Simulated assay, not measured.
Amino acid sequence: MKSRPALILLVIFALGLLLGVGVNELFLSDPILESNDAADHAPVSREAMFADADISAEDIELVQGKQGSLDWKLLAKSAKYNQELGVIAVEFPQLTAFFGDDRQEVYVQSERGEVDQGNDNLTLYDRVRGRFGDLALDAQQLDYVGAIGKVYLKGGVSLRRPDMTVQAKALEIDLVTRQLVAAGGVEALLAPEGLDGSPLQDDKE
């Protein structure tokens, strides 16, 4: 009868030892396969995608249009084309676009950008600044979608006109109807009297 407690203790000890070895192998062993698999699926940065660009150029001009009409042109200090993505990464782009029957001009510049000419889309980001008629704008990012004729501004958006100032997190501009829709922490200052004496107004004298 005295051997039973010893046998029970021995069984408990053996089970504990096996359990400990199993836990160690499962959770504490070097995850070589897992780490390699995670590395294979690590997200690739946009910079890395253009590091081995198919084509590189300096001081370029990109032009987009249809039916003999110029929609926009973009000047950049440098460009890298990734054929797989079908996208051109540009440095210090300057965009001039024309829209509407009256060929209203939009001018925008930034520090970096990406152009997808095949789909008539482009993105400008980092210190976006520009003008849209008598409007001046600032933002962190601008997305132009040619198929629907719209511009989306994001990040610290500021839109100024002699009689109005609008600040928001995002802003949508319809280039066809020329309507503006602001969203996210919108602050607007209206000053109709600001029109008088504005240097943007035509001199009627």
Rank of each mutant, 00 (worst) to 15 (best):
R160K: 15
Q67S: 14
S69G: 09
V157T: 05
L171K: 04
G130K: 01
Q83M: 12
L175F: 02
M49S: 13
L74E: 07
I55S: 11
K73G: 08
V181L: 15
S110G: 09
D71F: 12
A57T: 04
D59S: 02
P93Q: 03
A79V: 06
S158Q: 14
L137F: 10
L171N: 03
L75A: 05
R161T: 08
K80C: 01
L135N: 10
Y152N: 14
T165Q: 15
L171M: 10
A188S: 12
K73F: 15
V151S: 03
G156D: 10
L85W: 00
D120T: 03
I60H: 04
V108P: 03
V151F: 02
G86H: 00
K66Q: 14
T96G: 03
D163Y: 08
A51I: 10
R178S: 07
L171T: 00
L124F: 05
P93Y: 01
A51K: 13
K80A: 11
N82K: 08
E84N: 12
V151T: 11
Y152M: 14
L122V: 02
R131G: 04
L122N: 01
V186H: 02
D126G: 05
V145S: 13
E114P: 03
S56Y: 09
Q104W: 02
Y125E: 11
A42W: 12
G156L: 09
I173L: 13
V151P: 00
V106M: 11
L85T: 06
V115K: 05
V106P: 06
D102W: 09
S78A: 10
D163R: 03
S45H: 09
V181Y: 13
E187T: 12
V145C: 08
Q179Y: 05
L159P: 06
A76I: 00
E111Y: 00
R103N: 14
